[in-house]
């Protein structure tokens, strides 16, 4: 598969803190236009992997290509084509939702209307409201609006359902579907397994920093020795429980 066909291509990626390997020899490919669910228990290394893809963190070894470019040396070219919703982020409590989105629009040199983006994520009534007054769900919607600026070719969403009520969860799912329909690749990590099952073309399961399973839901079901109608949760528990004794807890 060439760089043109892949949104993300990771080869032998390792991130080590002291003696602890948080991500270990990770190989991963996400195709253009694909919706890829990146699952794993707490501390599996999902956010670290995303941090490496976005150049928040630097790898100990291994190579990465995001939209055919190295995020470490071509961060500007990568980030102008990628929409990012990070995990455990903070907003500027003294700025409005509009100002948050406008900063991204202006830096990307785009022409998006911040109000329209905020309306799309259900914050039409809070466009000029200070983000310091937002609930967790509103913060998550605002962060999603920022990720959608510039119709990115790739959306990297780290726990996009976090803090959302059922309406918000449905909204994110619908937006993911719309973006996929537009042709964007979507790479997201989540604990909300039922939603992953609904929206993902392929799923990768990370455990103790290693990719322990990857494929479509059907392929995972076949490989996990579970019953034929097993849910995503059944598969996840089976795959990660089976490997608990193979290594200690990792980030």
């Amino acid at each position: 598969m060439t760089d043109v066909d892949t949104a993300i291509n990771v080869d032998g990626l390792t991130k080590q803190y002291g003696d602890v390997r948080v991500v270990e020899s990770l190989n991963l490919t996400v195709k253009q236009g694909e919706t890829y669910g990146f699952l794993g228990p707490n501390g599996a290394g999902k956010s670290t992997t995303i941090g490496l893809l976005l150049d928040y963190l630097r790898p100990t070894s291994g190579t990465m290509r995001v939209l055919g470019r190295d995020p470490r040396t071509e961060v500007v070219e990568v980030h102008e084509r990628v929409g990012i919703l990070p995990d455990r982020y903070g907003l500027y409590t003294d700025r409005s939702a509009r100002q948050h989105v406008a900063l991204v629009v202006e830096t990307k040199g785009g022409s998006d209307d911040p109000k329209a983006l905020l309306e799309r994520v259900g914050l039409g009534d809070a466009v000029d409201q200070n983000a310091g007054t937002f609930s967790a769900g509103m913060e998550q919607r605002l962060a999603l609006a920022m990720a959608l600026v510039g119709e990115p070719e790739l959306l990297i969403l780290d726990e996009p359902f976090s803090g959302l009520d059922p309406h918000g969860v449905r909204l994110v799912r619908e937006i993911v579907a719309e973006e996929a329909e537009r042709g964007a690749a979507i790479f997201f990590s989540s604990h909300v397994l039922g939603q992953v099952e609904l929206v993902c073309d392929r799923i990768g399961i990370l455990h103790n920093g290693r990719l322990v399973a990857e494929g479509t839901l059907r392929e995972l079901r076949d490989g996990a020795e579970v019953v034929a109608d097993a849910t995503m949760e059944d598969i996840f528990v089976e795959l990660t429980d089976a490997r608990v004794d193979e290594g200690g807890d990792k980030r």
Binding site: H79, T107, M146
Partner: peptide
């Protein structure tokens, strides 16, 4: 301050070099 609150993740997500 941005590192502590996590807002640095948004800044570093912009198409800018460090």
């Amino acid at each position: 301050g941005e590192r502590t609150t996590g807002s640095l993740k948004f800044l570093l997500g912009l198409p800018l070099t460090r």
